[in-house]
Design a binder for these strands. Structure first.
Length: 555
DNA sequence: CGCGTTTGACCCGCGC
DNA sequence: GCGCGGGTCAAACGCG
């Protein structure tokens, strides 16, 4: 026989006197079940992997066996057969040299000789092999189907998102026109007329961000809003000026028009007249989302590609702060900072800033959308409080109503920053992950069938962001939805949780798409178009102060 | 040789 | 005005 097949159950090798069957199930669903179940492997007698001992005897000298989860033994072990002078065989792990359990020493082997003849067993094993192959094929087909579904859903999402962005831009344009007209009235009419406009209709979303720290830009934007109101056609000129100024600061930098969002802040400040939208872009750009996560591992994968462009020692922290720029598209303005926490260096803080100007792979969509939603809510102009300041508690509860302590708003930071603290587990079941290897707590899609805990973090965010009532609250201009909700007509969310849940009934799909779709709900700011905000990334930040040795790779 | 990282220098904002 | 700190640039360097 040219080719022998052996079948082992459990970790029996029992190759002697038996044809050895096999193929490997562990690459399939078995992997998700801790490698329990059959372990079969091919044996090729042509390659010196097998040797004949007698006409009906086949001895495997070397073959690949997938073992079960067992201490000190790899799942895939190469087996070396040793046969002594008495014809007794024993198996050794090629890698470890350890003796494996053999049929001679175990009586409970599933492949213990049951009296069947070699041919009969061969036939039985072949049948079993055929069944398993059919099952494998079915699994592969299912895999293919699910991937197709994922692609389709992803495409639908992109289409819907773009449509939504278009609509929101139109809406914003209309709103701005109204506001401008109202502002003209304010400018022209006497002061006692001003209160008739109520002021509340004037978009305040970019005022007083950062808990009252009204930046110079914001102040400029306010005045500019009034200035422009007298001359609408200043817009184009201002934009042109901005582009020129943003590029003349440093030559050869950010040549792409898309990168204007990352034009140096000074360029923006150098440009006295700024249209409202421009100002909002600047503010949006400055919105930051920090993600704190406990990570011993040097790498965090989020599906985006990053390039390190700087590293600095930050004051008060022995660990260096690394600066990364998204390189998935030319001129993508998204940047991020990575720094370990001074108090607990196991905690990695990743701060995102900017909005991607390119499509994101599904693996990056979840994180990007979640952070985008957070940033959008942070900057949402429809949620200023009565005193013009955002209520951090409200925002925190809005983003993560199930765990208010996970989201905090920084009031002292120079930029409005929301911090998603993933180091605190509101529900232990929601944060089950390998301790040594940090995994971005967002599903990475189904492309690799990575096991996703049903109650993992993604659903935390998904639940939070799908919470329709909370998002309706975002449309209010109240200080706190729980405290003083106003009864103004509110725009209805385009989606509701039920609809999305129905679509994403599959737990994996649900968790993978929850955050992504939620960005449509929450991240409806026109400036937050396309793929949403920043992505987390692989973080390789060594604790050494000098050589960060940080590298970021997309999945 | 191309690409990514490292690292010193530079720019800017802010506080004193 | 000066110094400090954050952020960025870009030449040098290393690696595949």
């Amino acid at each position: 026989m040219d080719k022998g097949w052996g079948l082992t159950l459990e970790k029996s090798d029992h190759f002697v006197n038996k044809p050895v069957f096999g193929f490997n199930l562990n690459s399939g669903l078995d992997h998700l079940n801790n490698n329990k179940g059959l372990s079969m492997f091919p044996v090729n007698s042509k390659g010196g992997e097998e040797q004949q001992a007698s006409p009906h005897e086949r001895r495997v000298v070397r073959g690949e066996v997938d073992f079960f989860s067992e201490k000190n033994r790899p799942f895939n072990a190469l087996v070396k057969k040793e046969i002594n002078s008495h014809g007794e065989a024993r198996d050794l792990d090629v890698n470890t040299g350890l003796q494996l359990v053999t049929a001679n020493t175990r009586s409970d082997q599933s492949t213990v000789d049951d009296g069947m003849s070699s041919d009969a067993e061969d036939k039985r094993a072949k049948n079993e092999l055929a069944q398993l192959q059919v099952e494998l094929e079915r699994i592969n087909n299912e895999n293919q189907r699910l991937r197709g579904m994922l692609t389709q859903v992803s495409n639908n999402y992109t289409t819907l998102h773009m449509h939504l962005v278009t609509l929101m831009q139109q809406q914003q344009q209309n709103s701005r026109t109204e506001n401008t007209q109202q502002q003209e009235i304010v400018d022209i009419k006497s002061e006692e007329k001003k209160h008739e406009n109520g002021g509340s209709m004037v978009p305040r979303q970019f005022l007083d961000l950062g808990s009252g720290v009204a930046t110079e830009e914001q102040s400029n934007s306010i005045s500019e809003e009034r200035t422009i109101s007298g001359s609408h056609n200043n817009n184009n000129n201002n934009n042109n000026n901005k582009l020129e100024l943003s590029g003349n600061k440093r030559t050869g930098r950010d040549e792409s028009p898309e990168s204007e969002g990352w034009a140096p802040n000074k360029a923006l400040k150098m440009n006295p007249p700024k249209p409202v939208e421009q100002s909002s872009e600047a503010t949006m750009r400055k919105a930051r989302v920090s993600v704190r996560a406990r990570s011993e591992a040097p790498m965090i994968s989020d599906g985006c590609q990053w390039r390190k462009y700087g590293q600095k020692m930050a004051k008060g922290n022995p660990c260096p702060r690394a600066y990364y720029r998204c390189t998935m598209a030319v001129g993508c303005p998204v940047r991020k900072q990575v720094q370990r926490c001074a108090e607990d260096q196991a905690i990695l803080t990743t701060t995102y800033e900017g909005t991607h100007n390119h499509p994101l792979p599904p693996a990056a969509m979840a994180m990007a959308s979640t952070t985008s939603a957070a940033a959008s809510m942070l900057l949402s102009g429809s949620m200023p409080s009565a005193d013009g300041l955002m209520n951090p508690n409200f925002l925190a509860r809005t983003i993560l109503p199930c765990s208010p302590n996970m989201a905090t708003i920084s009031a002292s930071a120079p930029f409005p920053t929301i911090t998603l603290d993933l180091t605190q587990s509101p529900n232990p079941l929601q944060f089950q992950r390998p301790p040594a290897q940090f995994q971005v707590p967002f599903p990475v899609g189904l492309q690799n069938f990575a096991p996703v805990q049903p109650n993992s973090v993604p659903q935390v965010f998904g639940q939070a962001l799908f919470n329709q009532s909370k998002f309706s609250g975002l449309q209010m201009s109240s200080q706190d939805i729980n405290e003083s909700p106003q009864s103004q007509p509110q725009p209805q969310p385009l989606y509701n949780a039920d609809t999305v849940s129905a679509i994403t009934s599959d737990p994996n799909f649900a968790s993978a798409l929850a955050a992504a779709i939620s960005s449509i709900i929450g991240g409806s700011h026109p400036n937050n178009s396309s793929s949403g905000s920043p992505n987390n990334a692989n973080v390789n930040t060594s604790n050494s102060n000098k050589s960060g040795n940080s590298s970021f790779q997309g999945s």
